[in-house]
């Protein structure tokens, strides 16, 4: 059983399980699946700075922060007890492309050659981590949700603005991965 859990899980197991979180949260307490609002709650709690967007009762949304804390704990559990320690098997074309930038598959889930602690103060590392993080935070709030809130919860409840957002997410990702990222990796 444990060795079965330690292998990478196939999409047809993971996807439906994630889909079931939608009714679990709805029926468990009338909550809609979503993560990115947590960044807003953290701003509202720590640095509201008299900005109207951050003046609301964030404590009413603390279930969402507890949910994020659970994700953090789940990541820890999976990495410590459910890992098989094997490097990710990746597409040969991607492996070839990345090897030109000195990036190789490793057992860690994020490549340490890009997102290691020693990379925080390099140009490439800070652009990817800090710049990427800024775009994720700014973009999700501007769009009113992320992959969870729009692409899974929004599409599940047939909301067409969520489809627009999902198409925009994918367009931005394609643009970055294929046309911009190669220049950033070369920094």
């Amino acid at each position: 059983m444990i060795s079965f859990l330690q292998q990478p899980w196939p999409w047809y197991v993971a996807g439906p399980l994630i889909g079931l979180l939608v009714p679990a949260l709805l029926l468990g307490g009338n909550k809609t699946f979503g993560i990115s609002s947590n960044f807003r709650h953290i701003c509202a709690a720590c640095a509201p700075a008299n900005i109207p967007f951050f003046k609301y009762n964030w404590k009413k949304e603390s279930w969402n922060l507890v949910f994020a804390l659970g994700i953090l704990a789940g990541g820890f559990i999976a990495a410590v007890w459910l890992s098989d320690g094997q490097p990710a098997a990746i597409h040969p074309a991607l492996a070839e492309e990345l090897s030109r930038f000195g990036i190789y598959p490793e057992a860690a889930i994020v490549p340490s050659s890009l997102f290691g602690l020693d990379q925080v103060f390099t140009l490439r590392g800070s652009v990817l981590m800090l710049g990427g993080g800024l775009l994720v935070g700014f973009g999700t709030r501007y769009a009113g949700g992320c992959t969870s809130g729009h692409s899974i919860m929004g599409l599940s409840s047939l909301q067409w603005p969520s489809l627009v957002a999902t198409v925009a997410f994918m367009a931005g990702g394609f643009l970055m991965a294929n046309f911009i990222l190669p220049h950033l990796l070369a920094l």
Partner: peptide, 9 residues
Amino acid sequence: GGLLFGLGW
């Protein structure tokens, strides 16, 4: 916002 988030993603 969606496009910007996609870039960051």
